[in-house]
Nucleic acid binder design. Structure first.
Length: 562
RNA sequence: GGUCCCGUAGCUCAGCUGGAUAGAGCAGCGGACUUCUAAUCCGCAGGUCGCAGGUUCGAAUCCUGCCGGGAUCGCCA
């Protein structure tokens, strides 16, 4: 074999089809050319060597040159020892080797309650963070508070109006352009209680900042409550305003820094192709050289009124993340921000000297339905659905599982009726039911055979080699996939894989359960054969551990009865 | 017009980063409840993986070009 052969394309993995053995490899096909042999001939040579191994029971060459390996019969039951030992920690790995990673998600404007549109990103980000944690990364969960733009001033004016209302003034209809929601009434009342009428009779400059601060704090409190209802949490709430307040103007400092590196210039931008925006004016502006880092265009840092663009602030924010030690950053955004990805990645490269990496996960829109009919939403008519509405109506677990039972970049139809009334359509119950059934068997076993029958020590001592039914082995093989699945899902930043895996694991379990209905000798609890019973209790205890661990990653409760 | 995402069974979607005969659920048809919980299970039927090229031992997967759907396109966030 030539020394410079490419071994990187060789895969050694469990095949999809169990008929192809326990482990399969494509090594012979990959190496046939450099070795100057036909794939099947090379495969035979490798197979011959493998057959000498003790733990290998059989080796076959199949298809175009696959080498299929069958392991000794005792191999699979041995897997359960690892699960029994580790319990819910089985599958935890050191993939991240304590590497720091920052996951930013939700980051909704603090101007009102969480909208249902925020729901998916929130759940996705939260589950992704859980997954990375499980895979051994040191995860920080972050929320970027957009508290510096014009819309928080609008919020302040809206709250001020409610404040005057709370003082007894007749305010009439909420003017166009202000937030009309009732949720600002308590904010107005709190302001009245704190300040009396001392904020009235002054120009806006006198009260705006005070009111804004109180209003933002109130909104963030509301948002945290909403997130808590969804079982979503963050470690850090990072204020955009803090970038220009306190320690000085960090956005300006950063622009100056980029300027010293020659990455900022005054120039003109080509107008967009196609239809021109109505208010387009061709003017000289301050631009970041995003094109040097793979973007399609250079990007403005200052608005026409001289204030910073959102992008400028976001650069400073990501630079701050990098300086806090996060070379790995993940942002979770709505799909409508897709056009923003390249410039942000360009900015991260620029501020990190190429050391930082940003992965942006775009979450597609959720379309709401009720009994097949689209739910129409409009803020003006007050018919928009809040995150809290959804959680209250269908429950936290179904919402979370549904949001995760889909790849992040695929659109999602969410039908209230399907998720509640026809609950069998919802896979969350299928998985939870599997866990509940196992809990039920373990309870029965403890009752009939005594509590020590289900003790950890007893299960560890069980004769696992007696698990030889095809359905039992299928279940064990599935469990053996778990660590690998965790690793790959974490690497791909795809928590939905965990959800699909749990469904399959549950399916294997339900199948086994029902075999016990047809053939009583396959029941888990066999009073005539306690040692076999112990082995089977160990088997399902392991299944429950993995179900619980996976559900924990998804942020869904592993219920013990239904 | 540029950029990004999507196109797989009647419907909703997976497909382990290039592997063997493309898989689930729902809907349809036929079966299993004196139960360790039927919110479950078993079987049948259902496919030009949008189209056409290319890369190689091998493509739903990678590349190019079309077709169709969605998002976005200086200063909003």
């Amino acid at each position: 074999m030539p020394a410079d052969s490419d071994f990187s394309k060789i895969a050694v993995e469990p095949p999809r089809d169990a008929a192809h053995g326990d482990i399969a490899t494509n090594a012979a096909m990959v190496l046939a050319r450099p070795a100057g042999l036909k794939p099947r001939d090379l495969a035979e040579q490798i197979a011959k060597l493998l057959r000498e191994e003790d733990e290998i029971e059989g080796v076959e060459v199949a298809g175009p040159g696959f080498i299929n390996i069958r392991l000794a019969p005792l191999f699979w039951p041995q897997v359960l020892h690892g699960v029994l030992e580790a319990g819910r920690d089985f599958g935890r790995c050191r993939l991240g080797t304590a590497q720091k990673v920052n996951v930013e998600y939700v980051s909704a404007n603090p101007t009102g309650p969480m909208h249902v549109g925020h729901c998916r990103g929130a759940v996705f980000g939260d589950a992704l963070a859980n997954l990375l944690d499980f895979a051994g990364f040191e995860v920080t969960r972050e929320y970027y508070i957009n508290d510096a733009g014009a819309q928080v001033d609008v919020l302040a004016r809206s709250a001020y109006l409610r404040y005057r209302e709370a003082l007894g003034e007749e305010i009439g209809a909420i003017p166009e352009g202000l937030y009309p929601g009732d949720y600002l009434k308590p904010v107005g009342a709190a302001l009245a209680a704190e300040f009396g009428d001392s904020l009235t009779g002054h120009p806006e400059e006198a009260w705006l900042e005070t009111v804004r601060e109180r209003a933002i704090a109130a909104m963030m409190e509301m948002i945290r409550d909403d997130l808590a209802a969804l079982n979503v949490r963050h470690d850090v709430f990072f204020s955009e305003r803090s970038l220009v307040r306190g320690e000085g103007d960090r956005i300006g400092a950063l622009i100056a820094e980029l300027g010293r590196d020659g990455l900022v210039y005054e120039g003109r931008l080509d107008p967009p192709k196609g239809k021109l925006p109505e208010d387009w004016e061709d003017r000289e502006q301050t631009l970041f050289r995003a094109r040097e880092f793979g973007d399609d265009s250079d990007r403005p840092l200052l608005k026409s009124d001289g204030s910073y663009t959102y992008f400028a602030a976001d650069i400073a924010y990501h630079a701050d993340k990098f300086r806090r030690g996060f070379a790995d950053m993940i942002d979770v955004w709505g799909a409508d921000h897709g056009g923003y990805v390249k410039r942000m990645q360009a900015a991260v490269k620029a501020v990190s000297g190429g050391e930082g990496a940003l992965d942006v996960k775009l979450v597609q829109l959720v379309k709401l339905y009720r009994g097949g009919e689209p739910v129409k939403m409009s803020k003006r008519s007050g018919t928009f659905v809040t995150l809290r509405d959804v959680v209250d109506e269908v429950g936290r677990d179904p919402v979370r599982f549904m949001m995760l039972y889909r790849k992040n970049d695929a659109p999602l139809d969410f039908d209230f009726q399907k998720v509640t009334e026809q609950s069998r359509d919802n896979p969350v119950f299928y998985v939870q039911y599997a866990h509940a059934r196992i809990s039920s068997v373990l309870r029965n076993a403890a009752e009939e055979l005594g509590a020590e029958a289900v003790s950890a020590a007893n299960l560890r001592a069980a004769p696992l080699e007696r698990l030889d039914d095809a359905a039992e082995l299928t279940l064990i093989r599935r469990m053996a996939e778990w660590p690998r699945l965790v690793e790959q899902a974490a690497l791909a930043h795809e928590p939905h894989r965990v959800a699909f895996y749990l469904y399959e694991l549950s399916s294997d379990f339900h199948g086994l359960w029902n075999r016990g209905k047809d053939s009583p000798q396959l029941r888990f609890i066999r009073k005539d054969d306690t040692s076999l019973t112990f082995a089977r209790l160990a088997l399902i205890q392991c299944t429950a551990s993995i179900l619980a661990a996976g559900l924990d990653i998804l942020g869904v409760e592993a219920v013990e009865e239904m």
